Computed example of a mutant assay.
Amino acid sequence: MISVATWNINSVRLRIDQVKRYLAEHAPDILCLQEIKCQEHQFPAEALAEAGYEHQVVCGQKGYHGVATVSRVPIREYSRHDWQDNGEARHVGVEVIGRDMLVENVYVPAGGDVPDREVNAKFGQKLDFLERMTRWADTVEKPTLIVGDFNIAPLESDVWSHKQLLKVVSHTPLEVETLQRFKDAHGWTDIGREHIRDPERYYSWWSYRSPDWRKNDRGRRLDHMWASPELARQASAHRVLEEARSWEKPSDHVPLVTEFDI
């Protein structure tokens, strides 16, 4: 068995204690982090190595974005794609040594506030990012797991109010359709929804603006773990750690983890 987790940590240096707590209490074999918000030389490599995660691949930049994959099993960098086409650090892929498995770690742009590329360039960049990902998906040949913050909640049960969020970036029909084209390009399996079936409530993000996130529960499922068909058949368990949203100085996202019999 091998377990892979994903977590938008919203600054790994600010929340290194939360990361270490998660690793100590839940011990995934591989942890994919998004929005690390640091350059590669600033990444808390030593602290994570001391926690048992000495294998590390980091794609960072100053102050914004950034992804990192850390592991207690051997990994090596496999790819870096600039799907934003502007140099931002939003993807890194690794090969799990000794296992027939690639893990692609991605941070899709949020897309700004207005769901119209004519008045909001960020929204257009998000759609273009997904289209480049889709062209890449057509070329995938090896058993692959793609994880991360997709910044899209595609299903009605992925948001606290489908009706109220239809015109809100992350749940608009155009974003959902664009993400579906990516899914269809390789026949990805949405691992989370294989184990937490629609229409069951399934969230991974709650805004900091909500004073009582648990009581109000205005969540969205922005984080995903999707597997290529052959790998999806080996997924044996999937969990969401909602309690991490209540930890001291929490990220607004919580970790997901999938176990594979591989």
Results as ranks from 00 to 15, higher is better:
residue 118 E to H: 14
residue 72 R to A: 03
residue 97 I to Q: 12
residue 94 V to T: 12
residue 100 D to Q: 15
residue 95 E to C: 09
residue 71 S to W: 00
residue 69 T to C: 10
residue 63 G to I: 03
residue 103 V to L: 08
residue 89 A to K: 07
residue 96 V to E: 07
residue 120 N to I: 06
residue 59 C to F: 15
residue 114 V to C: 05
residue 67 V to A: 05
residue 111 G to K: 00
residue 93 G to T: 01
residue 84 Q to M: 15
residue 114 V to P: 01
residue 101 M to G: 06
residue 68 A to Y: 08
residue 116 D to R: 07
residue 109 P to S: 10
residue 61 Q to V: 14
residue 67 V to Q: 03
residue 112 G to R: 05
residue 73 V to I: 15
residue 99 R to C: 08
residue 118 E to N: 14
residue 87 G to K: 07
residue 61 Q to G: 10
residue 109 P to R: 05
residue 74 P to Y: 12
residue 113 D to A: 15
residue 72 R to F: 01
residue 93 G to V: 10
residue 85 D to Q: 13
residue 104 E to H: 14
residue 105 N to H: 04
residue 95 E to M: 07
residue 60 G to I: 12
residue 119 V to H: 08
residue 69 T to E: 06
residue 74 P to W: 10
residue 107 Y to N: 04
residue 65 H to K: 13
residue 76 R to A: 13
residue 71 S to F: 09
residue 106 V to Q: 01
residue 74 P to F: 08
residue 101 M to R: 09
residue 78 Y to F: 15
residue 87 G to D: 04
residue 88 E to M: 09
residue 75 I to R: 14
residue 104 E to P: 05
residue 62 K to H: 04
residue 119 V to E: 01
residue 118 E to C: 06
residue 70 V to K: 09
residue 95 E to G: 03
residue 77 E to C: 11
residue 119 V to M: 02
residue 78 Y to S: 14
residue 89 A to W: 04
residue 113 D to M: 13
residue 71 S to D: 02
residue 105 N to Y: 02
residue 78 Y to D: 14
residue 96 V to A: 00
residue 112 G to Y: 03
residue 58 V to N: 06
residue 59 C to S: 15
residue 94 V to H: 03
residue 103 V to D: 00
residue 104 E to V: 12
residue 109 P to T: 03
residue 59 C to N: 15
residue 61 Q to A: 10
residue 117 R to T: 10
residue 72 R to Q: 08
residue 92 V to D: 06
residue 114 V to N: 06
residue 61 Q to E: 15
residue 104 E to T: 12
residue 106 V to T: 10
residue 82 D to I: 09
residue 75 I to E: 04
residue 117 R to D: 01
